[in-house]
Design a protein around this nucleic acid. Structure first.
Lengths: 347, 347
DNA sequence: ATGAAAGCGCTAACAT
DNA sequence: ATGTTAGCGCTTTCAT
């Protein structure tokens, strides 16, 4: 195969090789292969030439060098999803939906799992270095850390942040409308006669309590009730730690009669914990989870849960797409995702 | 801030800006920032100059453009992990371990979730196009499709494939040593008096049965037994579908007395299914899973499982690292990962 | 110990 | 409808 000198490095054909094989210039090949900018090319290249180019591409096994393209275009058409983990069906649904939506708009999605702040920082560094045009960030621990995201925003990273307790400023914001749904769940437990509720948190003793706990405390306060400090446990993030926490909670002399878990996996682990101690759900302990994942419907009893009413992530993707088209639009938007309470047999 | 003309596109400082601020040439800045090739630079740049450069970098908020670097170096120092999903602790452990190991060798890891063959194909296309130097591939459905991977190998993609029923040829191969562990599990069920075993597969009616089924059939055959076609169901991939499949299986007049699931999540869903039908585990149905994930230890009863004996992925990473150092080493290696059977209360 | 300069493979403005 | 060509921002050889 004839190849240009540069190929000595790669052993792979380059655009010049394709051009030579098709008897056209590299510009023509470039126009034919031009990614999203097909419109520009449509009027330029004759069908016959295009066919000849495509055939030469196929014959040579040519693949475009994305780095050269990006360097020149100064745009990757790639978006990063930064997420703390990829364990729940919710996360997977989010990833799948976003990919489909962005794909339909000529963008591809890369997912990076960032369980720690350090990893998130590193990943956003990659965006700054040109590995993607923008990012959708769903942070667990650091939701509410307005300043942190404003710092990133200052680095000109088009960014959609999904989280609680922030104001869009330098980034667009998506917030689950969790408060009313959680209030419904609390009301429901109180209706059922529960007065002491155990709370399974992600992490306790952070500098600020997590938002779902704030909502529960608020609603209990509305009814003249409160969360007892000894009824608050951490561990909801992992099934095993949730299981252990709930067992300790229920092993006490006067355990709470209901448990609110900030995750469904924590709620399901709580059911296992109750079963392992020969406690009946919901007669001995009522259990509520968060997220309303499908798995809630296969447990015995099925798990009551607070979660997204209509898990449609198109508006989230739209936020970033708009920002990529118009990076300098001054006003940043705040999207509220509807949530609801879905009572089942576990309460 | 003084900046070179090119910055008009990015509004971000470039190496020339840093060089000017530090009063040195771009070459010097490049040497100071030179990624993995620190050794080359050590002897060149004086400590004083380096300090001045680093300070200029910090002051300007400069970030290197990875695309320009890669275009010039013709190397990304990035590795892709292609995995069909990221739901089990096993997958997460794999990703975390690989990242740590590769990081220690100056490489970064990007994860791409590829639930379909199309997506895998697309991701490997990205490697060909220069987005990474190589890939570690853990395919579920397509394990055993030797030809498919040979096709990719022909494209010069340094690749480690994790799967069953293949021969390393153009790629290095990692195979779980599942057969003896699965044989142990089958023996154990037969010891317990089970003669008819239900099988929960990922997908049935593919052109070839999945390997875990082959191993079960083999061992049953050794004992003069067989899998009845009506005892084979699919759906192990998702908890909900597994639940439905097992309920249908157990609702029959003469259900099998034991179930072997090709996944732990399927096995756990089977426990829920049994509980929902007021069947006792293991008295009415014994259940075995695959993967030996932590969650096996919080179910009631705890789930017996076949899985990795020592989940150490360093040798896997080493395979790829060696290949990246020596792309043209002719012989391809085959690594066997030890597996075992871990009996618990569910059998 | 440091600098000058030639590209890496591609895109797109401009020319024809 | 197609070709020419000047860079994109960086690395690295060669010169000093």
């Amino acid at each position: 195969m004839v190849r240009s000198t540069a190929a000595k490095f790669t052993s792979r054909p380059m655009m010049a090789d394709v051009a030579r094989a098709a008897g056209v210039s590299v510009a023509t090949v470039s126009y034919v292969l031009g990614g999203r900018r097909g419109d520009l090319e449509a009027s330029r290249i004759s069908d016959e030439t295009r066919a000849r180019v495509m055939q030469a591409v196929a014959a040579s096994g040519y693949r475009i060098n994305e780095h050269a393209r990006t360097l020149r275009r100064n745009r990757t058409d790639r978006v990063l999803l930064l997420i703390d983990r990829m364990s729940s069906p919710y996360d997977q649904h989010l990833a799948t939906s976003l990919e489909a939506i962005l794909g339909a708009h000529g963008r591809s999605l890369s997912i990076m799992i960032c369980p720690t702040l350090e990893r998130l920082d590193n990943a956003l560094g990659m965006v700054r270095r040109g590995l993607a045009d923008g990012a959708i960030v769903q942070p667990w621990d650091i939701t509410g850390q307005q300043e942190l995201f404003e710092t990133y925003a200052r680095e000109q990273i088009p960014m959609v942040v999904m989280g609680q307790g922030m104001t869009p400023n330098g980034f667009d914001l998506v917030t689950n409308d969790e408060a009313p749904a959680i209030a419904d769940a609390v009301d429901h437990l109180i209706d059922r006669g529960h007065r002491r509720i155990g709370f399974l948190a992600h992490v306790v003793n952070q500098d600020r309590p997590e938002w779902r706990m704030v909502h529960v405390v608020d609603r209990l306060g509305f009814h003249g009730l409160a969360l007892a400090p000894e009824d608050i446990r951490d561990g909801a993030r992992h099934r095993l730690s949730a299981y252990e926490s709930v067992r300790l909670l229920l092993a006490r002399d006067q355990p709470p009669s209901a448990i609110f878990s900030v995750s469904d996996t924590g709620g399901i682990a709580a059911i296992w914990a109750a079963l392992s101690m020969d406690l009946r759900v919901p007669d001995d302990v009522a259990i509520v989870g968060c997220g309303n994942i499908d798995e809630c419907r296969i447990t015995a009893p099925q798990l009551s849960s607070v979660g997204p009413a209509t898990p449609d992530f198109f508006p989230v993707a739209k936020l970033l797409l708009d920002r990529l088209e118009q990076p300098s639009t001054p006003e940043y938007r705040h999207l509220l995702m509807p949530w609801g309470f879905f009572p089942r047999a576990s309460t």
